[in-house]
Write a protein that binds this DNA or RNA. Structure first.
Lengths: 191, 191
DNA sequence: GTCTATATGGAGATAGAC
DNA sequence: GTCTATCTCCATATAGAC
């Protein structure tokens, strides 16, 4: 890859990052391209050099989030015990509880918003969630559960994490995440 | 109350109901006043005789949902055992799983959307959720748990219900609700 | 590649006849 | 009370200079 291409892609990543932040805060529909341009520090018209439509931007955001998730999951492979890896996922929620209380889970809230939009965009937004669900199921399989049981446990775990992000956002209360995380950890210990 | 007032309020309730349905499907921001008027079978301009602004409409929807929830909770007082009342709540999710898979929980998805909007509207949207949380806590208190434990259990229950609505909507899969409901019922039995 | 200026459409809200 | 017609604003997207 030529240096110029690398720089161009780097710039695009910065735009995606800016768009991801402001859409997380305001939601996709209410966020204007002007908002994104301002957050990125460029002119409105310049956005169109990188993305043809607003939908293209959200597609790029979702793809980037999938990449980030995969990277984090590879990182967790260093942990020997599956229980520790699941604990690491829960800890992510605890660590981001303040921003979640303000704006919700970036993945879940986007899913909810784009699902109502209908069409292919809704299914696309669910991909990061699918990835977490599959990953969690694998961890429970590693703990010795069969496919069916592991699927149920993973569903319950991801469900709880998404649910607590919604509640903590609805009530603007980050401590709800702390409380639910404690509940989930006790549940995992008693499995 | 005079008959004319009764009729006017009845008409207003029908408008609220129509707005509630279409906003549940499309989301608040994406739903236009034209959509609501069409769903209600009236002209766009006629909406403004009943509601001064779009925000007024969503406020009326939330207030109506609170009334509906209270009514349902009074109905459940017929059930002697608190465990049966909680089971009735879970059964609501099972019963509405198809529409939840299509559009999510009407309460939770509106919370997520309006929380990003900021301001008083976000806090208002959380009122039905607060009501469910308080009600669930009371049921666990009735089962003999102290305030603290009952609060944690209620939080976990409502969290799971909201989370599974989000997931089933994200994946357009109503059966996820059936699976999580089974998980929750087993959990309740083992308490 | 980045900018300013603008075309185009659609949304909330209003006016005023009936 | 209900309607049609319209005002006004703002968002996406485009055009074209630099």
């Amino acid at each position: 890859m030529k240096p110029t291409q690398a720089r161009a892609q780097e710039k695009e990543l910065r735009l995606i990052d800016a768009a991801s932040r402001v859409i997380h805060k305001q939601g996709f529909v209410r966020t204007t391209l002007g908002d994104i341009a301002q957050e990125a520090g460029i002119a409105l018209g310049s956005l169109y050099y990188y993305f043809k439509t607003k939908d293209d931007i959200v597609r790029a955001i979702v793809a980037q989030r999938v990449r980030d998730l995969r990277e984090g999951m590879i990182d967790w492979e260093r942990l020997d015990r599956a229980a520790d890896r699941i604990d690491a996922l829960i800890q992510v929620w605890v660590n981001t509880r303040d921003v979640d209380a303000l704006y919700g889970c970036p993945i879940g809230s986007l899913c909810y918003e784009l699902a109502k939009q209908g069409g292919a965009l809704g299914a696309l937004a669910a991909e990061p969630l699918r990835l977490q669900l599959d990953w969690a199921k694998q961890q429970f399989c590693d703990m010795g559960y069969d496919e069916n049981a592991a699927g149920d446990l993973a569903l319950h775990l991801i469900t709880a994490l998404q649910g607590i992000s919604l509640l903590s956002n609805a009530f603007s209360d980050a401590e709800l995440i702390t409380r639910e995380a404690r509940h989930l950890r006790l549940w995992l210990q008693q499995l």
